[in-house]
Design a protein around this nucleic acid. Sequence first.
DNA 1: CCGTATCCTCCGGGATACTG
DNA 2: CAGTATCCCGGAGGATACGG
Lengths: 135, 135
Amino acid sequence: MMYDVFQRACPTRLVLDRIADKWTLLILLRLEEEPRRFNALRREVDGISQKVLSQTLRALERDGLVQRRVYPTVPVSVEYAITPLGRTLTGTVDAIRRWAQDNIESVLAAQKRYDAGAVEDPQNPLARAGALERG
Amino acid sequence: MMYDVFQRACPTRLVLDRIADKWTLLILLRLEEEPRRFNALRREVDGISQKVLSQTLRALERDGLVQRRVYPTVPVSVEYAITPLGRTLTGTVDAIRRWAQDNIESVLAAQKRYDAGAVEDPQNPLARAGALERG
DNA sequence: CCGTATCCTCCGGGATACTG
DNA sequence: CAGTATCCCGGAGGATACGG
């Protein structure tokens, strides 16, 4: 099969779209540890709304990354668990989290330099010859 | 430093938000190979609009992942190159792309099962005892 | 407890036109 | 070529209320 993620209509773009969602990453990281109840996830993924959590879990279930289990207690209890397919992804997802933790200070420093440099030397924006950074 | 990506206000969420953007991933993958001109990127990342490419590149530059170089030719030519910091991220990003290519068929199959099962057995949605999938 | 339904707002992003 | 500027629309997502 010829899959090219750079092509607009390539199905692999579906996967990118799903991963390209910060909530997906956070939910998978939680479920990698152990299955969770709905409201436990809601508390542990700070900032997510009930609606978006519900939507994201349904999408993850549809994609086969998460399994939804209903226990007919009263009231009903629902548990979400990662699937074997989902587990093949968590290593990479965790690598992203580690990168974020390891490099956030470099990123913040870069932002600071950028925001400062964007207005420096307004009289002489093209001072340097050859290749120029954002003059 | 105590960074917890699960906390709403954690700066590492900034990184997740940036990575949680399919265009960012595709652009970084292209620039990992070699520097590109603006319109080359536009052609090679199928489906991205001029405006979004411009925005995304600016954000990547601000975060220190990409460097913008201006050559004072006529007309001016601009080149985008990945930075050393950006290069530390591309391994993980490429792992995502590989996962997408390797598992897209499993995901599509899961979607098909899900979409079929969502309406099956309307008369007896809670047939199985114990733990139930989406009854 | 675990959601769905509804309303409403905001803004991401496409289309288009224009500039150095 | 490499953008910026403007308009505009659909859909993501918060708030709220309700149902099983």
